[in-house]
Each structure stands twice: as structure tokens, then as C-alpha cells.
Design a protein around this nucleic acid. Structure first.
Lengths: 355, 355
DNA sequence: CTTCCGCGCTAAACCGCTTTACTAAAGCGG
DNA sequence: CCGCTTTAGTAAAGCGGTTTAGCGCGGAAG
């Protein structure tokens, strides 16, 4: 049987109140009783029951991460791992815990209701997702990541379009015209593209508009290497084969790298590949991946900071988008057989950052 | 203000009991009232308060992961991500949630007390860690991973020694004699090597004992690429420079790969490297990493399954260690300038599995 | 010698839900 | 029409804490 506050009170010959005070309001107790109570509590191995405490205090000391995917896919995703690092930093600093809240029986709403949390951080929800409606009907403070802010919920984002645009321009300046674009998947089955995916696509297209390029081949792939490989398989063959790929995630880009290699294509000579995220492993692939860097850890830290401020009663609004930058490595070059063009990025050795 | 069960009861003109029954024991209510109550509850947007529910039911529907490290380092670690995939699978299947429980103010005991969970999965704790004592004094069901089982807590492990032995033998058969071993760090600052680290070291040494090799250079490094690079820097130079490295984690091995490259050494010609884990990215490094494969996801699934069974009142014991196998890729070969030796693994193309 | 104050502590209400025991009404066979 | 079993629903007692209101008491002020 669990040791309760009443047991301690009994053993120490005081009231439950006194025991509670000993832990939470020690100055309300006399020196002697305080010490006695703490002593007895320690001997009995007393620990306040977390649920009882949460019920009484109306706070649980936990913040939830609302994940619109199956847990097994979450951890396969390096991007999320990075993000969690940022969240974890802040959460730990404030002595909170992290509760992972995946859909319950396929329903995020159900999961939201079950979760005993003080606030939520939600990932990649479309603005019209029912889960958001549930959240503000319940009045649970929430901060969104990779989504769109609303009057009730601030959102943390990066400059998705800008990053995408510089990636596309990089390829176009190298002389590529036949491009393939690999989109991020919708977060929930029924929904359309996520806000992030839409913004990045807009960025690519803004660049394409400036050059005389045909519309790119587009396809959607989840953030795994396997999905990237499948996307590669789907590319048109022959005359319309893309000479360069714009992937919206590094995981997918790396999958393309592998599949291209298996198909006997050389990167970057036969196929240029640009990713998005700049995960740590992007620098370790062969060739090293040219990609759009976004400050993932910082994104997590910022979101957590905002949520914690909200929990403290402060009013917070969506911050300005964090900036992105193109990191040129070895996976991009001029298309083979192309004449010299304006850009000369492919001459570079090592890494180069382009704001 | 939150909608409580009393509000619903009032609005529907029934007792709190009836409302509770409507959700948990619908068969105890008449058809008409049942529908009315559910209807009203839905209109009001009623959701049972999770903490209140947990308090009353004496279960929270959450399992905790006891992490003996800072959260930010946890997610940097691919190995744990893999493990969480396995845990996540099972947890989700049973409609539970995952609570990440890192040390609170540096104290795991404190964190354990705060956490509202039905059971714990703990990672890499030494058998004499105080946290274990706290756990069984509180009587919280726990399953250990990468640790040592006790009468109270079952532990899930792989055949650490066997995997390590085959890795070392692989190098020895290739002709290497000057080896470096990179150990896993202790999980908690004060403690000694983890059981896992000790078992793997024993495996290495068992192999060394069979050959005429001098004792290896040994050093400890946390599971990050940066730590691996630092470990490489510390290697003796000149005559005593190791020709091959046995790392206890892939992350460290990959760090060594990078640092060796930066130092102008060619892998595998000048330095052979063997990792441990076989993370997905091990196949993507250049050269691809020779490593010991352990079934990480399965390890997580198994641990979760055991814990869930325990929560259902079943008695469970430590299962047999899961098996490991050596995966030979491109990061190992004969030491340069060595004469032909018995083994000829370096002739192989692509991957080869050695049980 | 009262009066008042503050100190140290306690009784009891409350947080929101579940569940056991119990009652009133309805059904039913004889 | 009576006694007995179901059926449908309720009151109240927990679960284990926190917190408000208040009580007795010793000492300082009047």
C-alpha cells in the first residue's frame, strides 16, 4: 500500500495540514515540528501522489506534445528528434515533464482529452484541423509549430518560402530545367498539404517563375529514406527524366541519394539533389547533401519558451519566422552536358552558405 | 471554467453517478437517459478531468521512460530514437501515453516521485543505482533495458558479449593487433561502467585472449559523433597508433570516421572501424560502417510488452538475451602492409552477415 | 487586569471523478 | 392482489492531496 499524507500525519502526531505545510509552506510551521515531520516523512518513504496533487493544484507539471502521427514514425524522423532536443532543453530547465500524445484510436481529440497536461505543443497541424477546435474549446494553452498562428494560438515557423526559393534558384542557376519536387505529406489522412508544405512549394515556384522552366514533376513522400527511394522510382524516365530534385526533407533527399546510386546514376553528375532541414547526418552522406538549413533546435526552444510564458499568464503572440539558409555541399552541380551558365557554385570546395 | 461531471448532471437532470455510468457502464442505464446524458455531455463539450480520473481509478494510462541523461542528449542519440519506436508501437497499441522522465534537478529519484505513471521503463541503470531502490520501495512496476535483472524487475538485453566478441575477432582475423576500444560512458556521473559496457568489453577481451595481441588502448566516449571525434584525437600517435577501432556505439564510430578523414587517414586502408548497434545511418556513411547489429526496435517492443503484462497483473521474468550479429561493410580491411592472413572478409563486396 | 495580536497548528471544505450500497418503482408469477 | 425479483437511478464515501477559516495561547500594549 502506498504511504499517504494521512499516514505521515498519524506517525508524526500532527494534522495532514501540517505535513502539507512542511513540504509546501515550511515557514508556517515551528522549527521543531517541521523537522519532525520531514524526518518521519523520509523514514516512511512518503511521496505525494502526483494525480492527487495535480487535481488539487489544477496543474500537472507536464506539457504535452501533440503528434499527428503514429509514434513509431515519429522517432524514425530525425527532424523531430532535433526538435525535441530544443523542447527538452527548456522543459527540463523549468522542471516540467514531456508527455508524448499520439492519436488515440486514430483520434487526436480523444488523446487530447485524456492527457493530463498544462499545455500543448502541436506539430504541423493544418489550421482547420478539428484538434485545434478541441484545444481552444477546452481552453488548454497551446503553441503551434510548423502551422499557422491564430488569435488563440501563437505559431513558431521558419522562413519556409525563402529557404525553398534559394534552393530552387541554386539549381536553376546551375542550369537545371527539368526539376522534380518532393512534397511533405499531409499530417492527417483526410487533410490537404500542410501549411509548411504549401509555403515551401510557393517558394520553389517563385524561383521557377523567374526562369524559363517547365512545371516540375511533383510527388509526395513521408519523411523517411524508404519513401524517398520510392519517390525516386516514380520519376519519369527517358527524355523527361528530372536532372535535379528538390526534396522538402533531408530524410527523403537521402533516400533519393541511395536509390539513385542503386539505379546507377551518379550524384551530382547525373542527378542533383537538394534537401531541406540540414539534419546532422546531411553532412555525412556521400556525397554530402546540399540542403536548406533551418534552426530546428532553436525552433523547439522558442516554442517551449512561449508556452511556458503562456502558462505563467503572460500574453504571447507569434514571433517572426526564423531565418533559413542554403548550405551548398556536394550533391549539386551543373547538369551533365550543359553549357557553362552564370552560377559557378559547383566550383566550390567544401561547404558554402548562401543566405 | 472547465465543464465538470456535475455540470453535465445538472443540465441533464440526473445524478453524477448517471453521467459516470453513461461513459463507463452504459448498460446500467436506460436507453432514453443514456442518450440524453451523452447528448448533453457532447453539447457542453464535457471531458473527464484526467487527474481526477487517475486519482479515482488508481491508474493513469501512462508509462514513464526513466532517462538517466539530459533530454537534449537523449534525442541526439539515434539509438534511443530506435528504441522509442519499439516502445511507441506497443504503447500505442494499448492506448497508453509515454511520459519522458529525465532527472529533476539532477535527481532521478525526485523525478520518479513526481511522475504520474503506471509503470516505468528504465534505460541503462547500474544495478546499484539509487533510483532502482526508490522504484521498488514505491512498488512501481518497472522493466529494465540494458541493465541487470533483479528479483523485482525483469531486464531486457541483447547478447552484448557475443556481438562484441565477433567484432573483435573479425579485426583480429584480418591481422590487426594494435586495437583501440571506445567504451560507453557511465549513465550517471558517480557510477562506474554500465552493465552493457562491461559485457561488451568482456566480449572484446575474450577474443583478444585467443590471439597474441597487446592490451588495447581504451577510452570512454558518450554516444555522439563529436565525442567519437575527440576519442580519435586522443589515440596514441606514431609506433603505437591503433590500426583498428572497436567502438561500442555507431554514433561514436561515425565520429571516428569523420575525424580520421579530417586527419588524412583513409578508412579502411589506414584505419579499420567497427561500430555497435547498426543504426539505419550506418549503411549510409562513407565508407559504410562495419558494425554489430542488435535488434533495437524489437528490444523496445519486448520491454514494453513485458511491462504491459506486468501491469495486467501477470508475473514476468527476464527473457533470454536477444541475438546480435556482425554486419561487415566497408570500414574494415587488413591493416596496410600486412601479409595475407587467414581471414579473407575484406574480399567481400557489399554486406555480409556473420552470426 | 483586560485587550489585542500574531504564532502555530488544525478541522473541514474542496478539487472531479468512480463505485458501493441502497431505494423506489416496475414487472411478474401465483 | 401480494410478495419477490429486476430495473433505473441516487446518495455518499472514498481517492490523496491543498487551502481557507478559525482556534487556543502566550506576550506586549494599554
Amino acid at each position: 500500500m502506498r504511504v499517504t499524507i494521512a499516514d505521515v500525519a498519524g506517525a508524526a502526531g500532527v494534522s495532514k495540514t501540517a505535513v502539507s505545510f512542511a513540504f509546501n509552506n515550511p515557514e508556517k510551521l515551528g522549527q521543531a515540528t517541521l523537522e519532525r515531520v520531514l524526518q518521519v516523512a523520509h523514514e516512511l518513504g512518503y511521496t505525494p501522489h502526483p494525480a492527487a496533487r495535480a487535481l488539487s493544484l489544477r496543474r500537472s507539471g507536464t506539457i504535452g506534445i501533440l503528434i499527428p502521427q503514429r509514434l513509431s514514425t515519429v522517432f524514425a524522423n530525425q527532424f523531430l528528434s532535433e526538435l525535441f532536443q530544443g523542447l527538452g532543453d527548456l522543459v527540463e530547465e523549468h522542471d516540467l515533464s514531456l508527455l508524448l500524445v499520439p492519436p488515440l484510436d486514430g483520434s487526436l481529440e480523444g488523446a487530447i482529452r485524456q492527457a493530463s497536461v498544462d499545455g500543448f505543443i502541436s506539430l504541423g497541424l493544418s489550421p482547420d484541423d478539428e484538434a485545434l477546435a478541441t484545444l481552444d474549446r477546452l481552453g488548454i494553452p497551446t503553441v503551434l509549430i510548423d502551422s499557422e498562428g491564430s488569435s488563440t494560438h501563437p505559431a513558431v515557423n521558419v522562413d519556409d518560402a525563402g529557404g525553398a526559393e534559394s534552393a530552387a534558384r541554386h539549381l536553376l542557376e546551375l542550369g537545371h530545367r527539368q526539376l522534380a519536387v518532393i512534397l511533405l505529406p499531409p499530417t492527417r489522412s483526410q487533410a490537404g498539404p500542410t501549411p509548411t508544405s504549401a509555403r515551401r512549394l510557393a517558394g520553389y515556384q517563385r524561383a521557377l517563375a523567374g526562369f524559363d522552366a517547365p512545371p516540375p514533376y511533383t510527388i509526395t513522400a513521408g519523411a523517411t529514406m524508404a519513401a524517398g527511394a520510392r519517390a525516386f522510382e516514380s520519376f519519369p524516365k527517358g527524355k523527361r527524366r528530372p536532372t535535379a530534385v528538390l526534396a522538402m526533407s533531408d530524410m527523403v533527399a537521402i533516400g533519393v541519394l541511395g536509390a539513385a546510386d542503386a539505379a546507377g546514376l551518379r550524384v551530382p553528375q547525373d542527378l542533383s539533389v537538394v534537401g531541406y532541414d540540414d539534419l546532422p547526418m546531411a553532412a555525412w552522406t556521400s556525397p554530402p547533401l546540399t540542403t536548406v538549413r533551418q534552426p530546428i533546435v532553436e525552433k523547439g526552444r522558442l516554442a517551449a519558451r512561449l508556452l511556458i510564458q503562456r502558462l505563467q499568464g503572460k500574453v504571447v503572440t507569434s514571433p517572426a519566422p526564423l531565418s533559413t539558409s542554403l548550405v551548398v555541399r556536394g550533391s549539386t552541380s551543373r547538369p551533365s552536358g550543359s553549357s557553362r551558365t552564370l552560377g559557378e557554385a559547383s566550383e566550390l570546395v567544401g561547404e558554402k552558405e548562401v543566405s
